[in-house]
Write a protein that binds this DNA or RNA. Sequence first.
RNA 1: GCGCCGCUAGCUCAACUGGCAGAGCAACUGACUCUUAAUCAGUAGGUUCCAGGUUCGAUUCCUGGGCGGCGCACCA
Length: 513
Amino acid sequence: MTQELSHLLRTRREKLEALRERGIEPYAYRFDRTARSDEVVSAYSEAERKGDLNESGEGSEVRVVGRIMSWRSHGKSAFAHIEDEGGRIQLYFRLDVLGQEAFDDLNLLDLGDWIGVEGRVFRTRTEEITVRAGSWTLLSKSLRPLPIPKEEVDPDTGERTVYSGFADPRTRYRQRYADLAVHPEVRKIVRTRTRLVSALRRFLDARGFLEVETPVLQPIYGGAAARPFTTYHNALDTTLYLRIADELYLKRLIVGGFERVYEIGKDFRNEGIDRSHNPEFTMLEFYQAFADYHDMMELVEELVGSVVEETTGSRRFVHQERDIDVSPPFRKVAFLEALGKKLGTSPAEMDVEGLRQALRERTGEDLDDAGRGRLLDKLFGALVEPELIQPTFVVDYPVELSPLAKHKRGDSSLTERFELFIGGWELANAFSELNDPLDQRARFEAQAQLRDAGDEEAHPIDEDYLRAMEYGMPPTGGVGIGVDRLVTLVTDSPSIRDVILFPTLRPEEGREG
RNA sequence: GCGCCGCUAGCUCAACUGGCAGAGCAACUGACUCUUAAUCAGUAGGUUCCAGGUUCGAUUCCUGGGCGGCGCACCA
């Protein structure tokens, strides 16, 4: 702890003691609020319009609460702004109204303190709706200075200029409570996220999907190609994995007779962190019996379009200065065709060596041990994906890349699978689910060979899942949607970490001040 | 894991080719009863991320390390 911070903390503790000595409890138990700050403003405007103000131009008496965000002291009077979830409201304190003692005690308040105030509402000379404090109550003393920015609001344009700020991303992510406390725009993202998730639920509920919960702790992970987090159960004396996908359990439920199921929950993948990846992230998966991937494409178009509109009011939004329109129908391109256009040759006619060479030429990467599937995927990721800004379904992936998807009708080298890209990011992944248990076993065995060859992300064999398939799963369409990424896009956030309240960070070493 | 950039007061940032470490805000003291980036006068506040090295002298240059951001890789 530096001397300076310790000085600031000490000053506040001294004020805390002084408050107690004066008989003021710095940590109150409750406060009866009559109106939120935004309600105070609208009620006063309404009263003003109706002519319901008294002869002094005052509205009704209110009790408001908030955190002190600014303070302007003028000797025998003072102005402050407090902020609650409704926004900010100005307070006006006067010596002749409060009396000497209550006015002097204001000196023991600091920015960041929570207070409650009772008083009549009026409009100041500069037209701001303000509560004239008849009395005030300390609700919670802040002992650590919040990095509250100073800001100026242009009265004509309403434009907000922030003069100093709390900018260090590390500290903002680590101390999200402080980030939220001083940045209304971060709170807005949180609300947008919640509205979007609610809209997803409403969309699926309205179409007869049943929301379920499946295990996070799994004896065998699967449903995606990724490395898992590993943990251990003491009583069972066994290794368990945090799920990397919900897929295999949800399809077991389709076997069990549920025709439409979905789950919104956390998946965990033991991989790097960047602007589109967090080790734990929120996935929506839904499965519909008797449907194929064409049906699911239509459903996804509707879902994305309507959820974005319900959340933001429009199907168009801007992400990082790019205009994006999620109005259906979305563009469709075939995987091999799109890649072929970039390569100048059909990848179907290229052998592994040719693909490897193409990758080397285009990206400078040498992948000596990579198989055909991985090479195709790498090339696609490097050449095609970054250009998929407007919503685009990429369809018909090579079978090597898709161990859980049905063969494409008429071409067994492909699968009936699509991924949805928006803004260059993979937003959704879906297929006509493989329901042939013998084919599924063969796919798993092919994955096992990749695993033996050193591919840590190859899909493990899940015998229980195969048993479920053997009982019989109806034809089913399934979709996974990355919820965090969708929120990142519609909130115009640069990074997935901006839409996750507490993103994964390296643990803090030691304790700071 | 690799590359680039960064780390200076509580916050936001300065400090020329190496030459006494500064400003604004926040804090503290005082003045001020309609202010709003309040204003005015004053005070205090620093292991310049860490450890070495070069140098008469390092915030500055070099080496190593730590932390972070961005990009790459990874993420079917």
